[in-house]
Nucleic acid binder design. Sequence first.
DNA 1: GGGACGATCGAT
DNA 2: TCGATCGTCCCC
Length: 211
Amino acid sequence: MHNQMITPDFFKQETLELAKSLLGMELVHETAEGTTAGMIVEVEAYRGPLDKAAHSYGGKMTERTRAMFGPPGHAYVYFIYGMHYCMNVVSAEEGAPEAVLIRALQPVSGIRLMGKRRGLDLPENSDIQEIPRRTLQRLTAGPARLCQAMGIDKKQYGLPLNRPPLYLRHYRDPIPKDRIASGPRINIDYAEEAKEYPWRFWIKDNPFVSK
DNA sequence: GGGACGATCGAT
DNA sequence: TCGATCGTCCCC
């Protein structure tokens, strides 16, 4: 299980199952600057036409949301608040616009590069223990923070996530069900009844969860 | 062409 | 709690 690439069928899970399966997996980005990787610790599911919180609510496809309507296992990256990027894993079959937002990572490798991208000057990786915990948390706790740390923006829009440069791989044994928590999604006050759907999932007690 | 808004973050 | 900051969406 350790550091194994995913199989072609991995993304053919129902979206809520895929969301939970992503917890504990590693997201890796290989770039000219170097490679960064983090373990996924928090996600949110967005489920197509009937989910008022989803960009694809009502089934409307725009230039921005096109990737959500494509085959699963690709990156849906969007720009928000005039300055941030967030990344989703597209789920469900082609034509069904569902996706899983990656909300937080626990840094695994390339931590110094993550810091550089986030505007910090961190010590060498060999001295990683010296970095204050809160500094490390601010690196990748939050959907926009992790994209900045991982070097993910519109250039990665639509990329397949089963091979370099941007990909998922198994990192450790699956997270046991009783170690996964769920609750309402964040910052979707406009979403009426969907506001309460418990489609946010995270690893219990993990310090890198965004909230 | 123009107005309103947002799956966030960081400072206050 | 609030301001930053601008692409995206939708209406005119």
